[in-house]
Design a binder for these strands. Sequence first.
DNA 1: AACAGAATCAACCGCAGAGCA
DNA 2: TTGCTCTGCGGTTGATTCTGT
Length: 387
Amino acid sequence: MGRPPCCDKVGIKKGPWTPEEDLILASYIKDHGPGNWRSVPTNTGLLRCSKSCRLRWTNYLRPGIKRGNFTELEEKMIISLQSLLGNKWAAIASYLPQRTDNDIKNYWNTHLKKKLKKFHSILHPHHLGSSSSSDSSTSFQFFSKDYSSSYDRIRNLEHHHLIHQNSALNKFISSHRSSVGSNTSSTTSTISYASSTENISRLLEGWMKSSPNKLNSSTALKLKATQTEEKVLTNGNNNSKNNNHNTSNSGNNNLDDDKLLVKKVEVQESCNEDDDLISNEADYFESLLTFDNISNMACWEQKSSSDSTTIHGSTTSASPEEPQTTTTTAATTPIEDRVDSISESDRQGLIEDDQNQPPFSLLEKWLLDEATGQVLEEDPMEISPIF
DNA sequence: AACAGAATCAACCGCAGAGCA
DNA sequence: TTGCTCTGCGGTTGATTCTGT
């Protein structure tokens, strides 16, 4: 026998929510705040289970939710964060405050996986036969494989990379959460009821603005799930404070980054001939995403495969779980140990070694771009006043 | 216009973990 | 320490909408 359903009451309604139900739920939460979902159906008279109420609030009625029309920046973020965190949709959603985990998950499954898969098929046409037998995770495996390959490199160079990432990401988060005043009236492609839920959501925004505590309890639940990831980032920042030689060498790090970027351009140029075959198709994707670095990876992959060399002696699995595993490994290792374990000479060696590595991954590039303010300037996200 | 297949996305299900007595 | 309750998360489903023929 299986586990009894959470909503074993007779008469529990399922299926789409009606505007009336939304109003009841929204007005109740307006008065009582989100939480204590178990009591919501009882107190409201809604013939819905507590989970359904919570889901409806979290994904649709909660003020500040932006629906549809994912921007290029958001796509980049989702792809990058998915590579870094795996299918931790709640964690990913915490970096996109206007998006729900469900929305991101759906967007990934319906759009981004296909895009990556198509892009993979363009970059690796010889893999089409083998990939045909695999499932929809192929695209991710391709991406995660490349990412995992570069991840060891990131770990070894994180005394300047991770710190850079942390500061950039934290800056991004803080800048967006402190953003005030932008209207969240996003244009929704979905008419009919979607717009009515948006209206309900907007109705609640005024209340939410005047009830920061209630809002915080709502968002805190969301952010709580990502404390682990953020702690990793925070540790990196703390580490940068605790290791003066790292932060004080920021100039050197910049030089290192410059070297790497120069190398990246060199590799890219060296691959231009090979890129000709795919450039037209790649242009299409570049209109959606900045995939030049992935293309570079492909070039590097060809290059490295001919050399039959292994990155830092590491072989990485292409399983979807792998990025999480490697991430966890890096995250659970005390960052002091990791940084201190890199001597100055080793670091120089790593930097030299890095010049034989593939160029920056998408995430690295994004973070570097963001660090220079390019991303925010080119596509500032609309953030609800509540954040 | 009608149909079929594909795409989308809201909602459900079941598991895991936190919190509490 | 244990067992229970509640909440959150991620995978999946299925109804609806879209697109091509």
